[in-house]
Computed example of a mutant assay.
Amino acid sequence: MHTLIVLSHPTPQSLTHAVAQAFAKGIEQSGQHTTENADIAAEAFEASYNPADRSAYLEQAALPFDVLREQQRIDKADALALIYPVYWWSFPGQLKGWIDRVFSNGWAYSEGADGRVEKRLGRLAVHLIGIGGADSGTYARHGYDKAMRTQIDHGIFGYCGARVVTSEFLLDVNGPAAASHLATARALGEKAFAHLARGTDRSVAAEAA
């Protein structure tokens, strides 16, 4: 099985990159699975939704080359992992722009003439790892974790039919909990395809509920 790991952080020495590496090692340790990194900051992915994207949506014009390239990377993968720092209780802007442009009508979903939506990413397993500075108590007290899962897990991936298998926050990065984050990321990678062995599509979040 193959996983595309999309990470969004401009600094290679960041915790985000270290978490992505640990997650990849966890996936690859069995020798049965492979990973590919899509470092969209290093690759200078253009995040702004532009007239060409709009034409593709409204007029069924051809998608821009960079969007097609990203879709092809996902098409080759069995799983998609997004690993990112939490900015203002959401994705970094570049990662949100990546979603805006790449998850296009006709590929991630289709809108029928009757208004019904066809979910087109049902084959895809998704792993979400957000990295935040605040502690878990802050997230729970203000409902940030629930709000982000509603927006991202359900609003984006649920809309397209993709299965969110992992939905985790690695928090309090400047506190004592940070020391365990790389081990946690590796452990998440080790069980990234455990849902296949269990014969279930239930997400980690659903199991914890």
Rank of each mutant, 00 (worst) to 15 (best):
Met1Trp: 02
Thr3Glu: 08
Thr3Cys: 14
Thr11Phe: 08
Gln13Trp: 06
Thr16Asp: 07
Ala18Ser: 12
Val19Ser: 06
Val19Thr: 08
Val19Glu: 04
Ala20Arg: 07
Gln21Cys: 09
Glu28Ala: 13
Glu36Met: 10
Ile40Pro: 04
Ala42Met: 07
Glu43Ile: 07
Ala44Trp: 04
Phe45Gly: 02
Asn50Gly: 15
Asp53Arg: 06
Ala56Phe: 11
Ala61Cys: 13
Phe65Glu: 08
Val67Asn: 10
Arg69Val: 09
Gln71Tyr: 06
Gln72His: 10
Ala81Pro: 03
Leu82Thr: 03
Pro85Arg: 03
Pro85Leu: 03
Tyr87Lys: 08
Trp88Asp: 02
Gln94Thr: 15
Gln94Trp: 04
Gln94Met: 15
Trp98Asn: 08
Asp100Lys: 08
Arg101Gln: 14
Phe103Asn: 04
Phe103Lys: 05
Asn105Leu: 12
Trp107Met: 13
Ser110Thr: 14
Ser110Gly: 12
Asp114Lys: 11
Gly115Leu: 05
Arg116Gly: 02
Val117His: 07
Lys119Asp: 01
Arg120Asn: 10
Val126Phe: 06
His127Tyr: 04
Gly133Lys: 00
Ala134Lys: 00
Ser136Phe: 00
Gly137Thr: 10
Thr138Val: 14
Arg149Gly: 05
Thr150Trp: 02
His154Met: 13
Ala162Val: 11
Thr166Arg: 00
Asn174Met: 12
Ala185Leu: 09
Ala187Leu: 11
Phe193His: 08
His195Met: 13
Ala197His: 07
Thr200Phe: 04
Asp201Glu: 06
Asp201Ile: 05
Ala205His: 06
Ala206Cys: 07
Ala206Met: 11
